[in-house]
Each structure stands twice: as structure tokens, then as C-alpha cells.
């Protein structure tokens, strides 16, 4: 039997050093709800596990004012749900993170793990893309920032260089009249994987959409930022024609596969259906803000 080394560094520096030193033979452990499952299935056999939950920056939730937040990459869903204000500013992001798994899974699963697992069906990713969140990354050569949508490179692949760790997500200021929402299509009511996931983030003024972002998951090798859909919504009052145009843009953006979880035709259709439903929820929420 192969031995596995377990490290739980207390600082980011130490973690980055250990990760870089292991040169590919180490895995980062946040909640472990993907990593441990993959290890048990024999898909991954890391020689070293680096647990990042003891690093303050990775588990902090910072309110930056004006609806802006910085959350540590390893914050579990359950902790975020208990935060007094995060869910008010970013209800769509929170509901997406809280959809991951079950109560038990929520106690561990983190948005950083969800993003870094690299699944196009990760629930929190479309919501963070729609939110315009920025990822702070730390590596052996220092720090950098990337928009969330720039992190995934394909199923299970990331645009991170060896030794880089995702530290936090920064969510921008929230102008008045802004809100977001996320819905996923799953065949069951829970404990399932998104066939399509879609998030809409809107700012509204007097019933008119002034800014919009649309994140679309599980329909392409990576989660998509659908600019055309957002463009169709901006300036509209979410009339049927605008929604239909945005739905068209979502359908057009789809580049899915036929697999056991859904057909190309079905996924494409659902992307359009969800756009309309999610935009309606986000708009309703924005009206209250």
C-alpha cells in the first residue's frame, strides 16, 4: 500500500511552498468532497495532500462595503449560508453554492473546490461567473487575478500553473436595484448533477435592465459567460421579445455532448427555458433591492 503524506499548513506561504515542492505529486484538499471520492475510485493517487482549511485567508468572509465581498476559496457552503449579509447581496451565488450535495456535503464543500474540480456542471461556477467575481491566485511566482470564467480550461483542466492555489473570490460592489439568481435542471429534486445550470445577475433602474451577466453551465467543455444573452437583456424591461432573444443566445452558445445525463437537443432546449425563468427571479429580487 502506498503511503500518503498529509500536510495542514497554517499560512498561504507554507502551502504554496509545499505544493510547489511536491511538483505535481500533491493535491490540494479543501472540503474533499470531490478529492476523496476520486481517490477512493482510484482516479487520483496523490502522494501528498495539502489541507488548506487551516489558512485564515482561505476560510475568511470579508464584507468590503457596498455589497462587495471577498470570500476564502475553502469556505464551506454551510458557513456561507449562516453569514448575515452575504446572501442578501448575492442570493444567486449563495443558492448555487448551497445546492451542492446534501446537508452533509454542505458542511465541507467549498466554492474553490467546486471551481478547481473543473467540472462544467459545477453549480456555483455559473453563478460566480454571472456575478463577475474575480479569483485571487497565489503561486510560487507570486499572486495574480483572473475572472472566474477564465479559470476552467476544459473538463477537469484549469488555467492554473503548477503550484498555484486559488485563495479567494472577490465580488464587486452592488449598485441599488441589483440581484442575481441561479437554477439548474436535474432529473431528481436533489442529489443529482446539473444537466444545465444557469445564472443571471441583473441591475435594474425603473424596471429597465441597466447591466446584466449570464453564466451557463453543463452545456460546453467549460462554464460560459454568455455575452449575447446579457446584451439582449440590457436596455429591456424583460419583455417577451428580449427574453426570447436572450434565450436564443443561450441556445446558440450551447456546445454540449450527448451523454448519459442529457441529449444535445434536450440540453439546448433547457438552456433557453432556464434563461427566462432565472431572469424573472433575478428581476423580482432586484426590484426589492
Amino acid at each position: 500500500m502506498t503511503e500518503i503524506r498529509y500536510l495542514a499548513p497554517g499560512s498561504l506561504d507554507e502551502a504554496v511552498k509545499a505544493f510547489a515542492a511536491a511538483s505535481g505529486a500533491a493535491s490540494i484538499l479543501a472540503g474533499g468532497t470531490d478529492l476523496l471520492v476520486q481517490m477512493r475510485a482510484g482516479v487520483r493517487q496523490p502522494g501528498t495532500i495539502i489541507d488548506i482549511k487551516k489558512i485564515p485567508a482561505l476560510t475568511a468572509i470579508e464584507e468590503l462595503g457596498g455589497g462587495a465581498f471577498r470570500i476564502g476559496a475553502a469556505v464551506p457552503g454551510a458557513v456561507l449560508a449562516e453569514h448575515p449579509t452575504f446572501g442578501k447581496a448575492w442570493p444567486g451565488v449563495l443558492e448555487a453554492i448551497n445546492l451542492i450535495g446534501s446537508k452533509q456535503v454542505q458542511g465541507r464543500a467549498s466554492p474553490g473546490g467546486n471551481l478547481c474540480n473543473g467540472s462544467p456542471a459545477g453549480d456555483s461556477v455559473p453563478a460566480m461567473v454571472a456575478a463577475g467575481a474575480v479569483v485571487t491566485i497565489q503561486g510560487p511566482n507570486g499572486g495574480r487575478e483572473l475572472p472566474v470564467e477564465a479559470v476552467p480550461a476544459g473538463p477537469g483542466r484549469l488555467n492554473l500553473t503548477p503550484g498555484e492555489i486559488v485563495v479567494s473570490f472577490t465580488f464587486p460592489d452592488r449598485p441599488k436595484g441589483s440581484s442575481d439568481a441561479y437554477l439548474r435542471m436535474i432529473p431528481r429534486t436533489e442529489m443529482d448533477i446539473a444537466v444545465v445550470g444557469l445564472a443571471v445577475n441583473l441591475s435594474m433602474d425603473g424596471g429597465v435592465v441597466t447591466a446584466a451577466r449570464v453564466g451557463l453551465g453543463a452545456v460546453a467543455p467549460t462554464v460560459l459567460l454568455v455575452g449575447d444573452a446579457a446584451a439582449a437583456l440590457v436596455g429591456s424591461r424583460l419583455e417577451d421579445a428580449a427574453l426570447e432573444k436572450a434565450a436564443d443566445a443561450c441556445r446558440a452558445a450551447c456546445n454540449p455532448i450527448n451523454d448519459k445525463r442529457g441529449t444535445i437537443a434536450y440540453r439546448t432546449k433547457v438552456a433557453g427555458v432556464l434563461l427566462k425563468r432565472v431572469a424573472a427571479i433575478a428581476a423580482q429580487r432586484a426590484g426589492g433591492n
Binding site: 431528481r188 429534486t189 436533489e190 443529482d192 448519459k260 445525463r261
Partner: peptide, 16 residues
């Protein structure tokens, strides 16, 4: 068999 797991072999869960 392409769905030899409880994730992809969809038995109803309680909330279904």
C-alpha cells in the same frame, strides 16, 4: 453499463 453508480442510475430520493 455506462451508469453503474447511484448518481447516474436514478432511483428516487426522499424529496422526489
Amino acid at each position: 453499463v455506462d451508469n453503474a453508480t447511484f448518481l447516474d442510475y436514478r432511483m428516487p430520493v426522499c424529496s422526489d
